[in-house]
Write a protein that binds this DNA or RNA. Sequence first.
DNA 1: ACATTTACGTCAGCCATGTTGACATATTTT
DNA 2: AAAATATGTCAACATGGCTGACGTAAATGT
Lengths: 177, 177
Amino acid sequence: MADVNVTVLKAPPAQASNPGEPIWDIIELLFFAYRDFVGDPDEVLGKLGFGRAHHRVLHFVNRNPGMKVADLLDILKITKQSLGRVLKQLVDEGYVVQKEGAVDRRQRLLYVTSKGEALALKLATLQTERIARAFGSLGPNAHEAAYRFLAAMIDDENRDGVLRQISRASRPPKARS
Amino acid sequence: MADVNVTVLKAPPAQASNPGEPIWDIIELLFFAYRDFVGDPDEVLGKLGFGRAHHRVLHFVNRNPGMKVADLLDILKITKQSLGRVLKQLVDEGYVVQKEGAVDRRQRLLYVTSKGEALALKLATLQTERIARAFGSLGPNAHEAAYRFLAAMIDDENRDGVLRQISRASRPPKARS
DNA sequence: ACATTTACGTCAGCCATGTTGACATATTTT
DNA sequence: AAAATATGTCAACATGGCTGACGTAAATGT
């Protein structure tokens, strides 16, 4: 029996949002919540000589095996030079491999190794524990509420693409010869 | 009549959370939502030669007029050297002023100028528009749901302090001679 | 009264990770 | 054959974290 917190907090918003006035509470909560959220993996990453940039690359490669470098650049919205630096380290240390594309041999399709998958899972588990703890302290529809709120916060132009990518990721192992 | 989006999206979570498995959708949505959220102010800041570090300092000084430097360091969790760099620029360019503490004259209490307040408000308004748009596309209790989710995501040790700080911020103008 | 602690500032240098710009190489497309 | 595409690389620079050392003024403790 895990130590699950099932207390349903009755926390009211700090303010009634007057029209036109900044929504200070959500602005600040996003800052604090995100900082704690991304802070969890830092200790593990630090021991390996990696940073958050490595985490992001490893995460998305793990979730989208066989993705192109260009796709990764699109998701991360950084330059290929910035990506190249951290990607090279991940490849050199055996967390990621690049395979020549079968159909288009210019492509270097990205895959995690088992070592990389293990690390990605370890980091995701840390973050999942925080999320699960939060959901446990809220009502039964907490997951759906969080999903809808976060999805609605994404740029209109990106939202559909992101949601599609999230739902299809890690479904078919994208069988490759 | 503003162009308010009142469509209530019926977006289901991408996955039923199997126990012990990473909650991939929320992990990724946090990444994308936060990136778009903090991206809004960047253009404005860039024109002024400022970055996100300046934004954070300006934001919290605006919200907590008269705060001590030590308090700001606690909130931001950075070193005084890192803070000093951006704070000095904000002071030099007339966005923030430091006043000697009346009771403890070692303290340099921080206040935004009217120029600083105007910028803080401009940036907060950009982010508020995104949040309001999101809430508009969700149900009537979206604000409370988001508040509770984000609060639950904060470290247990910090949560009460953060919530207290959020609720009392900008209430009393902290009258000062 | 004097010693210590506290609040803050500063100098110097390092690191991680973002940027632009230019150029190279292999491969596919036209 | 020429042009476009996918990727890599070199060089230089900016931002914003960090550590360590040191300084100064004011408050606090004995």
